[in-house]
Amino acid sequence: MHSTIAAPSSRALELARTLIRMNTVSANSNLALIHFIRDELAGLGVASRLTFNADKTKANLFATLGEGKPAGIILSGHTDTVPWDGQAWTADPLDPVVRDGKLFGRGSADMKSFIAMAVAHAERFLHSAPPFAIHFAFSYDEEVGCFGVRHLIADMRDAGIEPLACIIGEPTSMVPAIAHKGVYRYRCCVRGKEAHSSLTPQSVNAIEMAARVIGKLRDMAEGFERDEPRYEGFDVPYSTASVGQFHGGIADNVVPRDAEFRYEFRDLPTADARAMQAELVAHAQSLEPAMRRVAPEAGFRFETICEIPSFLGAPGDSVTRLAQRLAGETRTTQVAFGTEAGIFKNAGIATVVCGPGSIVQAHQPDEYVTLEQLGRCEAFMHGLAGTRELG
Rank of each mutant, 00 (worst) to 15 (best):
A6T: 13
A7H: 07
S10I: 14
S10E: 07
L15F: 14
N28E: 11
D39N: 15
D39W: 06
G45S: 11
V46G: 06
A47Q: 15
S48P: 02
L50I: 10
A59I: 05
L61E: 01
F62N: 03
K69D: 11
I74R: 08
W84R: 06
G86K: 15
A91D: 14
V97F: 07
V97H: 13
V97W: 05
V98Y: 00
R99Q: 13
G107S: 08
D110G: 04
M111F: 09
M111K: 06
F114D: 00
A116L: 03
H121S: 06
A122L: 10
F132D: 00
H135E: 08
F136I: 01
S139A: 08
S139T: 10
S139F: 02
D141H: 12
V144D: 03
C146A: 14
F147E: 13
G148S: 05
H151I: 03
D158A: 15
A159S: 12
A159K: 09
I161A: 03
I168M: 01
I168P: 01
I168N: 00
P171W: 13
I178L: 03
A179C: 07
H180D: 05
G182T: 07
Y184R: 02
Y186I: 07
K193C: 03
A195E: 02
S203Q: 04
N205T: 10
A206M: 13
I207L: 05
M209R: 08
V213A: 02
A221G: 14
E228N: 05
E232F: 12
Y238N: 03
I250M: 09
I250R: 12
N253D: 01
D258H: 13
R262F: 05
D267P: 00
A273T: 13
A278H: 13
V281S: 01
H283Y: 15
Q285C: 02
E288W: 10
G299K: 13
F300H: 10
R301N: 04
E303V: 02
E303M: 14
C306T: 11
S310W: 01
F311R: 07
F311L: 10
F311N: 00
G313D: 10
G313A: 11
G313M: 12
A314L: 06
G316L: 13
L322A: 09
A323L: 07
L326C: 07
V335Q: 04
A336K: 06
F344Y: 14
A347D: 06
V352H: 00
G357E: 03
H363F: 05
P365M: 13
D366K: 08
E367G: 01
T370E: 00
G375W: 00
R376E: 08
F380V: 00
M381E: 02
A385F: 15
G391K: 06
